[in-house]
Amino acid sequence: MFRSQVGREAEALLLPPGGARPRRWADRTFRGALTAPGLVVVLLVAWIAVELTGAAMPAIRRFGPAFLWTSRWDPVHNVFGALPFVYGTIASSVLAVVIGVPISLGVAIYLAEIAGARTARLLSCLIELVAAIPSVILGLWGIFVLAPWVRTVVEPPLAAVLGWLPLFSGPAYGIGLLAAGIILAIMVIPVVSSVSRDALRAVPQEQREAMYALGATRWEVIRHAVLPYGRSGIIGAIILGFGRAFGETMAVTMVIGNRPQIAPSLFQPAYTIAAALANEFSEATSDLYLSALVEMALVLFAVSLLVNGAAQWLVSRMTRA
């Protein structure tokens, strides 16, 4: 009696939830029933790749890799080069990172190193709510609030002081690359700040104390001990933010001006891949036109795989260490 009970308990311990080898057929079936949905995500990603590649094939065959660096986008004559869209996508995302990352790091440092636990929780909540604003609402706000503000408040002084740089030359439109960069920065900040906050929190207290014990001020502790230790997590966060920015569609479409051009000035309108898809996909008249659009979607997809893969790897390395 006693022996059997002990035996059963031992068996339960030897067969933990991750049980090496459920013996009953029901357990085995259940195992399969859980594994299949898990595999669905893997299947989906592969399927997306196959489906998009297939649909993009006509354009890939017709234009080859030059698709990415020629800039004639002419649906009437069925000639498609994606360079203006590639440029707009990269430029707006880089702008978002340039504007958003310093702010995100400031937020992350404040939350992880300075604010008390309760304040940090409240502020984290507010910043998560920024991430919860639907993109299309941010776009609406962008059209009617942000763009006029950029046109009247941001661009004139920038032009007055830095107008000699081509980057800040020309008339103030409001709608354009700068407005897109700002709105993307707003969307990127919650992601970058929360991931880097976690990276900073993962820094062992000993590192901070060792720096304090050398007579460092709090800023010096952050600068010389905390930030260097958490750097791979922070880099992961930035890459993740970049990934979030370049695939973003609605808000950008609504404020970037949607003009396929490569202008030197940030005040000028531009066009992104995602915006082109949103505007032109359901109106694509020829098969080749549609195929060219799908090829751009494929580019977005491929870059998102690379960027997110790299970021996940960096962040997980940080939290595992």
Binding site: I48, A55, A274, A278, Q312
Partner: peptide, 27 residues
Amino acid sequence: LGWWIRFTADVLNGVPSIVVGVFVYAL
């Protein structure tokens, strides 16, 4: 297997929503 599924789920989460739209359009 779990590691790969977790990794792919995070990657899928990062795929731009417009790309999912294009996929379902084709599908």
